[in-house]
Computed example of a mutant assay.
Amino acid sequence: MTLDLAIVVPVFNERGNVPLLVAALDTALAGFAWEAIFVDDDSPDGTADVVREIARSDPRIRVLQRIGRRGLSTACIEGMCATAAPLVAVIDGDLQHDEALLPRMAAALAGDRAIDLVIGSRFVDGGGTGAWDADRVAKSALATRLSRRVLKADLSDPMSGFFMIRSDVVRGVAPRLLGIGFKILLDILTAAPVPLRFVELPYVFRTRAVGESKLDHVVALEYLIALYDRMFGRVVPVRFVMFSAIGAAGAIVHLAALGLFLELGGGFVMATIVATMVAMTFNFFLNNHLTYRDRRLRGVRALVNGWLSFCAVCSVGAVANVGLAAFLYDVRGGAWALPALAGIAVGAVWNFALSSRFTWGRYGRRAT
């Protein structure tokens, strides 16, 4: 039987939901030749093993287990590019999306070649957000308004993670995708060289019954990062902006630590050394958690090696900063503002480039 449809399911710690979702897909897609590709970010709860066990008796079920990589968007990209089916859908593994809508999505694409994409929407007539509280509704509305500024399209639910697209369309746009954060639909729509033609179908968002939500403050930050990157990333890379912002926060930490140790009676030189190490440690862990979340170092050994590498890189960057600033200060005959800013800029670029290569490039690939 010719393969009609692939369902990509990005998962992390969803072992309890996998059998339920497979059963639900089997019911919803009766009459279709389909496959489900579960893309698992090496879940510690053994999600991939649960999928493999089902796949032993059901050839429609596949698993891609990613080692050393995390992120919903990149998981979706890999899954969508791993099928030969002409249509590919993305659905969450937590059963909050309504799988019964999939046949209507497929019918819409099969019935009109002018449509590239069908989106499950919570905000068109007939759709709903289920048990969301007022705070989450307000946050979603704000995120939707921000998205529309980037999209410039009349789309009611640009934050939707439930959609179906023609496989050749997504493969064509894949090299342009950012793969940042949780909002792969927004990524696809903004990366397409020409506007994609879409329709929205209503569904009601369900309440999670098994497992824990992955939504947190970092997910919200990644969404803002993705918007920034689409608007300004070609001018100043978003990762460099985050690295620099954390560096600025580290400068405040440095001054606070310096003041504290001086108050405790320490000498200036020793207090400066301690404050510098405190600031470097602060910067390292915050960058590991935010800037390089997709390459995050885990485990004591990886963290210690990464911290040593980061401190070494930043120490050389500090020398470059001071050296350039001192040179320009002498050249300009005592004017200090521009030399200081130039030194800071050179130090920031040095630290970013070298830590990306040697700290999170070298050690990040080994981390599990």
Results as ranks from 00 to 15, higher is better:
Phe240Asn: 05
Asp26His: 14
Leu308Gly: 05
Pro59Ser: 10
Leu20Trp: 07
Leu308Lys: 06
Leu308Arg: 14
Arg296Met: 14
Ala226His: 13
Asp4Asn: 13
Leu5Glu: 00
Leu260Met: 12
Ala312Glu: 03
Pro19Cys: 08
Val238Lys: 06
Asp42Leu: 11
Val173Trp: 04
Val39Tyr: 01
Ile77Asp: 04
Met80Trp: 05
Cys76Gln: 11
Gly361Leu: 07
Val11Glu: 01
Ala75Asn: 12
Pro339Ser: 01
Leu101Cys: 14
Ile184Arg: 11
Val22His: 05
Leu324Lys: 04
Arg296Gly: 01
Asn17Phe: 10
Gly250Tyr: 02
Glu212Pro: 06
Phe358Gly: 02
Tyr223Asp: 15
Phe352Gln: 05
Ile344Trp: 07
Thr276Arg: 09
Arg234Cys: 09
Leu185Gln: 05
Arg365Ser: 13
Val124Leu: 08
Ala106Gly: 08
Pro175Asn: 04
Ile91Tyr: 00
Leu303Met: 13
Phe182Trp: 13
Arg69Ala: 15
Ala342Gly: 08
Thr272Met: 09
Val236Gly: 03
Arg366Cys: 12
Asn288Leu: 03
Met159Phe: 13
Arg104Asp: 06
Val124Lys: 04
Arg298Asn: 12
Ile344Glu: 06
Ile91Cys: 08
Ile188Ser: 02
Val11Met: 11
Val210Gly: 13
Arg298Ala: 09
Tyr223Ile: 11
Asn13Ile: 04
Phe261Asn: 01
Ala28Val: 03
Ile252Asp: 01
Val90Ser: 02
Val118Met: 01
Ala107His: 10
Ala106Lys: 01
Leu290Lys: 09
Arg301Gln: 12
Leu290Ala: 10
Thr47Phe: 02
Ile91Val: 08
Phe123Ile: 14
Met105Gln: 03
Val18Lys: 04
Gly93Pro: 01
Leu5Met: 01
Arg136Trp: 12
Gly247Leu: 00
Trp336Ser: 15
Arg230Trp: 07
Glu78Cys: 09
Cys311Gly: 10
Ser43Met: 01
Leu102Gly: 00
Arg366Pro: 00
Asp294Thr: 11
Arg239Glu: 12
Ala28Cys: 03
His217Ser: 15
Leu177Lys: 09
Arg298Leu: 14
Ala320Ile: 12
Gly333Gln: 04
Leu338Cys: 09
Ala114His: 12
Ala209Arg: 15
Val349Cys: 06
Ala251His: 14
Leu224Ile: 03
Val173Tyr: 02
Gly46His: 05
Gly16Thr: 05
Arg171Thr: 11
Ser147Phe: 09
Ala107Asp: 13
Leu117Asp: 05
Val274Gly: 01
Val253Glu: 04
Trp350Gln: 02
Ala138Met: 12
Asp58Lys: 10
Arg230Leu: 11
Leu324Asn: 00
Leu142Tyr: 15
Gln65Tyr: 06
Val18Gly: 02
Ser147Gly: 06
Asn283Ser: 14
Pro193Arg: 07
Gly343Leu: 02
Asp154Tyr: 07
Val278Leu: 05
Ser147Asn: 13
Ile252Thr: 13
Glu263Arg: 15
Phe285Lys: 03
Ala326Lys: 14
Leu255Met: 14
Trp350Asn: 06
Leu189Thr: 06
Ser167Arg: 12
Glu78Asp: 10
Ser43Glu: 10
Leu3Asp: 03
Val238Gln: 11
Pro237Phe: 04
Arg136Glu: 10
Arg197Ala: 10
Arg362Gly: 14
Leu262Gly: 00
Pro237Asn: 05
Ile225Ser: 13
Leu338Thr: 14
Ala131Trp: 15
Leu286Ile: 12
Thr368Asp: 15
Leu64Ser: 00
Leu324Ser: 04
Pro158Asn: 04
